[in-house]
Every structure is written in C-alpha cells, then in structure tokens.
Amino acid sequence: MSNAILLKQLGVDENSKPLPIKVKQQPEDKYYKAKFTPDFPPIPSFEPNLFIYASLVPGSVSVIGRHHTADDFYQITIIIDQKLESGTYPIEKGDESRVRASVISAGGIISSDKGEIKLKRENIKESIYAEFDFQIESGGTSYKVEGRLELRATGPL
C-alpha cells in the first residue's frame, strides 16, 4: 500500500495535518472514548470533537475520534477491512492486517503493533460499536490505549 493511501485512511495529509472531511453529525448518544496508561503527555485528556466512521479509500473503513481546534489537533484512528464482520480481531501493523490502530498528535503518527478489538457492526443501522485495547511506543515509553466507541456512519461505508 502506498503512503498516500495510508494517509488518506488516517484522514491526514503528508504533514500529519487533518484533511477536511465532510461528515454527518453524530446523535448525542454516540461517543468515542479512550484512556492512556500511563498518561500520554501530548494528549492530556482524549476529548474528540469530530467523529468519522466511513470508507475514505476503497477496501477499508476508518473509525476516527478527532480533536481539532485552532490551537490543537490529535486523534485516534482505527482502520478496519471493509468486509470485516462483527467479532474479535487482533490489532497489528502492516498492509496485511485486517485491523490497524494509530494515534496522531504533536505532528506525528504512532502506529500500534499489538492489541485487540471487539467489533459489533450493524449494516442496516450503519453503526459500529467497539471495545479496543492496544499499545503504542513513544520516546522509549510504552502506553496502553483502552477505549470504546459507538458511532453511526458519517459517510459511505
């Protein structure tokens, strides 16, 4: 896979800046929550203000919780195979992985090389529920990222 495709799946440009993506507004009861252990300095508290659940490139679906203001940008992205059904899957690095996860903050992309996600996809309602747990490495420290989300499609799946 080319770097340009991966960046589009992540919803960012070559400078790790957010691409403008038109999305449908999420209902009030939908969410994307995550906690870092130990605390991850670039993201003191994960508080996304934009949610994306859509296919940004053919063959995959991006599930993004993004915080974007004039002064701050960070996000957690989970990329799943477009045909993936409900179930439990490993989170791994690489083009062959059916599920990948990344944290983007302070101008950098940190991909997870191990973790797990439990998915429940509902095609008729165009919704997704997931519980995830993965690890990232930054500055020689390993961080555990645990969270859950429930979103409706914000674009074509």
Results as ranks from 00 to 15, higher is better:
residue 16 S to Q: 10
residue 76 I to C: 06
residue 18 P to R: 05
residue 90 P to G: 06
residue 119 L to T: 04
residue 110 I to Y: 14
residue 45 S to W: 06
residue 24 K to S: 14
residue 133 D to Y: 01
residue 58 P to I: 02
residue 86 S to R: 04
residue 69 T to S: 09
residue 48 P to R: 02
residue 122 E to Y: 10
residue 17 K to N: 13
residue 104 I to W: 02
residue 57 V to M: 09
residue 93 K to T: 13
residue 66 R to H: 02
residue 65 G to Q: 01
residue 101 A to N: 02
residue 61 V to K: 06
residue 39 D to T: 15
residue 127 S to E: 09
residue 122 E to V: 13
residue 65 G to S: 05
residue 51 F to V: 04
residue 65 G to I: 00
residue 113 D to H: 10
residue 81 D to H: 12
residue 104 I to K: 00
residue 136 I to G: 00
residue 22 K to H: 14
residue 43 I to A: 02
residue 129 Y to N: 12
residue 117 I to Y: 02
residue 141 T to R: 14
residue 97 S to G: 08
residue 42 P to W: 01
residue 47 E to M: 12
residue 125 K to Q: 09
residue 51 F to H: 01
residue 82 Q to K: 11
residue 92 E to R: 14
residue 129 Y to H: 08
residue 125 K to A: 13
residue 14 E to M: 10
residue 17 K to M: 12
residue 46 F to D: 01
residue 48 P to K: 03
residue 30 K to I: 10
residue 61 V to M: 05
residue 119 L to S: 05
residue 69 T to L: 02
residue 134 F to Y: 03
residue 98 R to T: 12
residue 37 T to R: 10
residue 56 L to W: 00
residue 64 I to H: 02
residue 29 D to W: 15
residue 47 E to C: 08
residue 27 P to T: 09
residue 20 P to K: 15
residue 84 L to D: 07
residue 31 Y to K: 08
residue 27 P to C: 11
residue 57 V to T: 15
residue 28 E to P: 08
residue 35 K to P: 08
residue 132 F to H: 01
residue 110 I to R: 15
residue 84 L to R: 03
residue 32 Y to Q: 09
residue 128 I to D: 02
residue 95 D to P: 10
residue 113 D to K: 12
residue 58 P to V: 04
residue 62 S to K: 03
residue 12 V to F: 04
residue 81 D to G: 11
residue 136 I to F: 00
residue 69 T to Y: 02
residue 61 V to C: 08
residue 107 G to Q: 08
residue 101 A to K: 00
residue 85 E to W: 05
residue 123 N to E: 15
residue 123 N to R: 13
residue 109 I to W: 07
residue 54 A to R: 01
residue 17 K to L: 13
residue 37 T to L: 13
residue 31 Y to F: 14
residue 60 S to R: 15
residue 18 P to T: 06
residue 55 S to E: 04
residue 36 F to T: 07
residue 124 I to P: 07
residue 142 S to D: 08
residue 90 P to C: 05
residue 41 P to F: 04
residue 90 P to T: 07
residue 87 G to Y: 00
residue 63 V to N: 03
residue 114 K to S: 15
residue 37 T to F: 09
